[in-house]
Amino acid sequence: MGLTGILLAAGKSTRLGRDKLSVVMPDGRALAAWSLEAALGSTLERVICVVKPEDTLSWMPREWLSSASYAYQSEAKLLISICDDYAMGMAHSLHCGLQTAKQYEPDGYMIMLADQPLIETSQINEIKTIFQTHKQSDYVAATDCAGGKPPVAFRSHLLGQLLSLSGDEGARRIMHNPQFTGTYVPFSAPSFWDADTEEELERIVRHIEYDHSSRDTHPLK
């Protein structure tokens, strides 16, 4: 029951040219650790982190890795799902996460991206709260006023639709389907910034450094 998060962390980092998950951020942690911490700190019942087989998980803080499960465990907060066919496209990584998540029979699945380090725990919680209160909505998605974007939570009856995605096809196909209704939650533009290129990565780092310097009493999270 409840809402299960699926953090997609099995990308190829083709455009960046190096492993984006392990890029060291201004606070000394890896980029993907920011995204994972936001998810684990939320009220999601559990988080499925989808990774590729060759990922050493060196980007993941040791305390999280030591408590993670690789198989069904009813009390586990963090599960690692290894996706052998990640190179076939993002949809296949999503399928791996869904296959792991559905064992828990959740009310829904929240899709998140590991390369969006500026997503915050409070935003994930907001999506979950609206998902719980707007029961007429088939999905609840974040938005920058240009359509729905991750984090996006889909109700369990859309599992078949999600599993029908293929290649690099994202969940936008479902959100664009007039058969389904959604609720959109506005987030600030930086929340959606990803690290696909060096320029985009530099923009994220500058934003973090500026935010840190402008908040004297708040250390980097």
Rank of each mutant, 00 (worst) to 15 (best):
G2E: 11
G11D: 13
S13I: 06
S13H: 10
R15P: 03
G17T: 04
D19L: 02
D19K: 05
M25W: 12
G28N: 06
R29C: 07
A38H: 12
A39R: 14
L40D: 04
G41M: 12
L44A: 11
L44S: 12
V47L: 05
V50I: 00
V51Q: 08
P53A: 14
S58P: 06
S58N: 03
M60L: 07
R62D: 01
W64Q: 04
Y70G: 02
A76P: 01
L79N: 02
I82G: 00
I82N: 03
D85I: 05
M88I: 14
M90P: 02
M90I: 12
M90V: 08
H92Y: 09
S93C: 05
L94C: 03
H95N: 00
G97Q: 01
G97H: 08
T100W: 08
A101V: 06
Q103H: 13
E105H: 08
E105W: 11
E105K: 14
G108I: 05
M110Y: 11
L113E: 09
I119C: 07
E120Q: 15
S122V: 14
E126I: 11
E126A: 15
I127H: 14
T129A: 11
T133S: 09
H134M: 08
Q136E: 14
D138L: 06
Y139D: 00
A142Y: 11
A142L: 15
D144Y: 15
A153Q: 04
H157E: 02
L158P: 03
Q161G: 08
L162W: 03
N177Y: 05
N177A: 08
F187G: 00
T197L: 09
E198Y: 11
V205S: 01
R215S: 06
H218L: 12
